[in-house]
Simulated assay, not measured.
Amino acid sequence: MPDSNTTDFTNPSTFILLGIPGLEAAHVWIAIPFCAMYAIALLGNFTILFIIKRELSLHGPMYYFLCMLAVIDLVVCTSTVPKMLRIFWFNSREINFSACLTQLFFIHSFSGMESGILVAMAFDRYVAICDPLRHSTILTNHVVAKIGLTVVLRSSIISLPYPFLVRQWPYCRTNVIPEPFCVHIAVVKLACADTRVSSYYGLFALFCVLGLDAIFIVISYIQILRAIFRLPTRDARHKTFGTCSSHLCAILIFYIPGLFSSLTYRFGQNVPQHFHVLIGNVYLLVPPMLNPIIYGVRTSQIWKSLF
Rank of each mutant, 00 (worst) to 15 (best):
residue 2 P to L: 15
residue 6 T to V: 10
residue 15 F to Q: 09
residue 17 L to E: 12
residue 18 L to K: 10
residue 19 G to P: 03
residue 21 P to V: 06
residue 24 E to C: 13
residue 25 A to P: 06
residue 26 A to W: 13
residue 29 W to L: 12
residue 31 A to T: 11
residue 32 I to F: 00
residue 42 L to G: 12
residue 44 G to I: 05
residue 49 L to S: 13
residue 53 K to M: 06
residue 54 R to V: 14
residue 60 G to F: 03
residue 65 F to E: 01
residue 69 L to N: 07
residue 75 V to M: 14
residue 79 S to A: 13
residue 81 V to H: 05
residue 86 R to Y: 12
residue 91 N to K: 15
residue 100 C to A: 15
residue 101 L to W: 02
residue 105 F to D: 06
residue 108 H to Q: 07
residue 109 S to N: 05
residue 110 F to M: 14
residue 112 G to S: 13
residue 112 G to N: 09
residue 113 M to W: 06
residue 115 S to A: 05
residue 116 G to F: 02
residue 128 A to F: 01
residue 128 A to Q: 04
residue 132 P to N: 07
residue 134 R to A: 05
residue 137 T to P: 00
residue 139 L to A: 00
residue 139 L to R: 05
residue 146 K to L: 11
residue 156 S to H: 11
residue 158 I to K: 07
residue 160 L to F: 10
residue 166 V to L: 00
residue 166 V to Y: 03
residue 167 R to H: 11
residue 175 N to W: 07
residue 177 I to Q: 01
residue 181 F to N: 06
residue 181 F to C: 15
residue 184 H to V: 09
residue 186 A to H: 02
residue 189 K to T: 10
residue 191 A to W: 03
residue 194 D to P: 03
residue 196 R to Q: 04
residue 198 S to M: 11
residue 211 G to K: 01
residue 214 A to I: 04
residue 221 Y to K: 06
residue 222 I to H: 04
residue 223 Q to E: 15
residue 225 L to H: 08
residue 233 T to I: 01
residue 239 K to S: 10
residue 248 L to I: 11
residue 255 Y to G: 00
residue 256 I to E: 06
residue 259 L to D: 15
residue 261 S to I: 06
residue 262 S to Y: 02
residue 270 N to P: 00
residue 272 P to N: 13
residue 272 P to H: 08
residue 273 Q to L: 14
residue 276 H to C: 03
residue 283 Y to P: 03
residue 285 L to V: 14
residue 287 P to N: 10
residue 291 N to K: 14
residue 292 P to R: 07
residue 298 R to W: 00
residue 307 F to G: 12
